[in-house]
Computed example of a mutant assay.
Amino acid sequence: MADDPYAALGVSRTATDAEIKKAYRKIARTDHPDLTDDPAAHERFKAASAAYDLLRDPEQRARFDRGEIDAQGQERPQRRYYRDFSESPDNPYRGQADFGDFSDVFADLFGEGGRGGFRAGARPGAGGRSFDMRGQDYRYTLEVDFLTAARGGTTRITLPEGQVLDVNIPAGTRDGQTIRLRGKGGPGMGEAPPGDALLTLSVREDPDWRPEGDDVTTVLPISLDEAVLGGRVEVQTIDGPVMLTIPRGASSGQKLRLRGRGLQGAGGKRGDQHVELRVVMPPKVDDELARFIETWRKDHAYDPRATRRRGGR
């Protein structure tokens, strides 16, 4: 992991969120482990993924810029000089000859989240005490396609250390959601457990599906005769194809609702799917169709733009 996440992505510290996202996706398209066997590319992708995970969060980015956390998202120990600490009224050991257990001092220096423990008799020759600290959490970004995120499923990943894992993607996963893989982070110190791997999911946009909260919108092309006469046609849903009834006289832009066919939301309740109709003319208007329309227009002509003109638009 690079010490400077901005350098890992090749952007300046004043880069916008959009510029940061664009830079990450550019690297992912060339250096992703699934696309190349080059070890150097794998390292660049690993560094870029960790950098993007840090900088995409406005609060985390601000804390890094202020120097409160490092490039791995870990708290930076606040610098305190021994003299300042020893003379402070807050020092519980001030004026005492017995220095005893220094675990509270470590907590002050490293913060409660990174505090180690001292175990009696665990390391002979080291005063009967040893230092245990939980391993560091590793952060990655995992891109999944829209339907995998919507339906749920399993995707296989390869960690930078070479370990292959099958990751369960919950149904209804949203962009930016994080999955925790316990014990797949950095090794612990002493007898402390390893850290976790945190996968931030990036849901890839799909031109056929437009999510809007728990609802989704799709476009269904229909023929001229289906628009005029109506009928039953097949439409794709997250769960697979279903038959949909097209009403007589359907128009482009008209939306039909499929209840409970959207994304899984809070409490397991699913949203709806909105099917937007799009009337598509035949590849070629032959003479028979043209003559029919000419005859029909003589007695049935109408102006679809009249309503807009009356509304002043």
Results as ranks from 00 to 15, higher is better:
residue 4 D to C: 07
residue 17 D to L: 13
residue 117 G to S: 15
residue 226 E to F: 05
residue 100 G to H: 09
residue 106 F to E: 11
residue 275 V to D: 07
residue 226 E to Y: 03
residue 144 V to K: 00
residue 6 Y to G: 09
residue 108 D to M: 11
residue 290 A to Q: 09
residue 64 F to T: 08
residue 108 D to S: 15
residue 102 F to P: 15
residue 198 L to Q: 07
residue 69 I to A: 09
residue 188 G to H: 06
residue 210 R to D: 04
residue 51 A to T: 10
residue 49 S to A: 15
residue 302 Y to S: 13
residue 299 D to P: 00
residue 169 I to P: 02
residue 110 F to R: 04
residue 306 A to V: 12
residue 108 D to Y: 12
residue 105 V to S: 13
residue 58 P to N: 10
residue 164 V to I: 15
residue 309 R to S: 11
residue 1 M to R: 11
residue 66 R to Q: 14
residue 243 M to V: 13
residue 169 I to L: 00
residue 211 P to V: 02
residue 120 A to H: 09
residue 75 E to N: 12
residue 192 A to I: 08
residue 245 T to F: 02
residue 79 R to C: 01
residue 309 R to H: 09
residue 152 G to P: 10
residue 64 F to D: 03
residue 150 A to P: 02
residue 97 A to W: 04
residue 242 V to R: 11
residue 279 V to H: 08
residue 289 L to V: 02
residue 313 R to D: 12
residue 167 V to Y: 10
residue 113 G to W: 07
residue 54 L to I: 10
residue 62 A to V: 07
residue 118 F to K: 06
residue 130 S to C: 06
residue 229 L to Q: 06
residue 159 L to C: 08
residue 1 M to N: 12
residue 243 M to K: 11
residue 215 D to V: 02
residue 8 A to E: 06
residue 272 D to Y: 04
residue 209 W to I: 09
residue 292 F to V: 08
residue 149 A to K: 01
residue 93 Y to T: 08
residue 242 V to Y: 02
residue 82 Y to S: 13
residue 46 K to H: 10
residue 196 D to N: 14
residue 17 D to C: 08
residue 138 Y to L: 14
residue 298 K to Y: 05
residue 5 P to I: 12
residue 211 P to F: 00
residue 64 F to Y: 15
residue 63 R to P: 01
residue 116 G to Q: 04
